[in-house]
Write a protein that binds this DNA or RNA. Structure first.
Length: 192
DNA sequence: GTTAAGATCTGCT
DNA sequence: GCAGATCTTAACG
């Protein structure tokens, strides 16, 4: 059910690509919300100045250097959280940013969290937005993503039929030549 | 102690 | 399409 250790035994770029089409599930007292991952970005430990880990371990990015399959969550621009999955063995410092999901279950709850004037294709089409819709915050930093209340679930249908595209990452000011953003081509719920 | 920059979003033009 | 909001983090003095 939950994504296993084998899934995370590959290179971070490959994991980022493979995460497309998998499920992200979140359980709270208010109910269940889930979505299909449609956009990810890989952040590498070597030759990647855009990665938070590139200038060494700090208090903020310590989770990134910890064991894999954990959530690395940080606060940005005074308002928003970003949700990452740690992908490399302890000490390395690599992660995959989940940038957008296609909402599946718990639409009402997501609308409620995001504000009523929000439309369905505006619910979780961006890193800050999906954290709001899924009620993800700093308290889940370091959480093991194989367990409730926040976990990744295998999609058993044939997601290979979806066309995957690699593009430059968004919102960074360095290493823009690297094609480390992965999207399900043509999906309606991409951040752009 | 102080400062500058940031893996963003929203609203307005 | 563009600027403003907003505040934590880390680097520097």
């Amino acid at each position: 059910m939950a994504l296993d250790n084998h899934f995370f035994s590959f290179k971070t770029e490959e994991i980022a690509r493979n995460l497309l089409g998998q499920y992200l599930c979140r359980e709270t007292e208010e109910g269940l919300t889930s979505g299909l991952i449609v956009e990810t970005e890989a952040y590498l430990s070597e030759h990647d100045p855009a990665c938070h880990a590139s200038s060494g371990k700090t208090k903020r990015n310590a989770t990134m250097f910890g064991p894999p399959v954990r959530a690395y969550i940080y606060f940005i621009y005074g308002n928003y959280f970003c949700f990452n999955v740690v992908t490399a063995p302890e000490g390395k410092g690599e992660a995959v940013l989940i940038r957008a999901v296609q909402p599946l279950e718990g639409l009402d709850l997501m609308l409620q969290r995001r504000g009523a004037q929000c439309s369905i294709n505006n619910l979780s089409s961006g890193p800050g937005k999906l954290c709001q819709a899924f009620a993800i915050d700093k308290s889940l930093d370091g959480h093991d993503l194989r367990q409730k209340p926040l976990y990744l679930k295998e999609n058993k249908t044939e997601y290979d039929r979806w066309q995957v595209e690699a593009t430059p990452r968004i919102g960074i000011s360095s290493a823009q030549d690297k094609l480390l953003r992965f999207i399900i081509s043509g999906n309606k719920y991409l951040s752009r």
